[in-house]
Simulated assay, not measured.
Amino acid sequence: MSALQGCIDECRRCAGLFRLGRDVEAALEMVEVFEGAQHLLVSALPDIQQSWAQVLTQMLECQERQDWLGLADFMEYELIQLLESSSA
């Protein structure tokens, strides 16, 4: 399995934990997901890096509000789309 696919799988798993209300467990896993995404996106095009910064900011705002479903949506849709576009 590639690093990209592994990160995408982790995004989906973490989003699922948030959707199940297991926010403490998901928040711990989220740190690893963000580190993996950062590692994959550090060499991406500048516009993708800017999008990553915006998505990360929005996800952290969801976390502050304890909007777990919003955070799950960002992880499962926005972040995965960003990761996939970085490898294209």
Rank of each mutant, 00 (worst) to 15 (best):
D9I: 10
L4P: 03
L4D: 05
R19T: 05
M75K: 04
L69M: 14
L82A: 01
D9M: 12
Q38L: 05
S2I: 05
E32I: 08
L40K: 07
L56Y: 12
R19Q: 15
L79A: 02
A3Y: 03
L20H: 13
C62P: 00
E25W: 04
E32Y: 12
D23Q: 14
C7V: 12
S85F: 02
H39Q: 14
A88F: 09
L40P: 04
D67P: 03
Y77F: 14
L17V: 00
V31I: 09
M1H: 04
S2R: 06
A72P: 03
A53Y: 00
S2W: 09
T57A: 13
S2V: 01
R13Y: 10
Q54Y: 03
Q66R: 15
R22S: 10
L20F: 09
E32C: 04
V31F: 02
R12H: 09
V55M: 07
D67R: 07
C11L: 00
L71M: 14
D9H: 13
A3V: 01
G36P: 06
Q66K: 13
A26R: 11
M59P: 02
Q49R: 15
P46S: 01
M30E: 03
E64K: 05
E25N: 03
C14D: 04
Q50N: 15
D67A: 08
E78Y: 02
M1Q: 01
E29A: 15
M30L: 06
Q5D: 14
T57Q: 13
F74H: 02
S51W: 11
A27S: 14
E29P: 06
L40D: 05
L40T: 03
C14T: 15
Q66N: 12
Q49P: 09
L71C: 10
F18W: 01
V42L: 15
D73N: 07
S86M: 08
V24I: 12
R19Y: 07
L56S: 13
Q54S: 07
V31Y: 01
E35F: 10
E25A: 10
E64F: 04
H39E: 15
E35A: 13
W52D: 00
E78I: 02
Q66M: 12
D23P: 00
F34S: 05
L71T: 04
V42D: 15
Q63F: 01
L28F: 06
R22G: 06
L60I: 02
C7G: 06
V24F: 08
P46V: 02
L83F: 02
I8Q: 06
V55W: 14
G6R: 11
M1N: 01
E84M: 04
L60Q: 12
Q50A: 15
S2F: 06
L60W: 03
A27D: 08
C7Y: 10
I8S: 07
T57Y: 07
A88C: 09
L83D: 06
T57K: 13
E78P: 06
E29D: 15
P46T: 01
D47H: 12
C14A: 06
V31M: 08
S87T: 09
E61D: 15
G16S: 06
T57N: 06
S51R: 15
L28E: 14
S51Q: 14
S51G: 05
Y77C: 12
F74D: 00
A37V: 11
D23I: 07
Q50T: 15
R65W: 09
L82D: 05
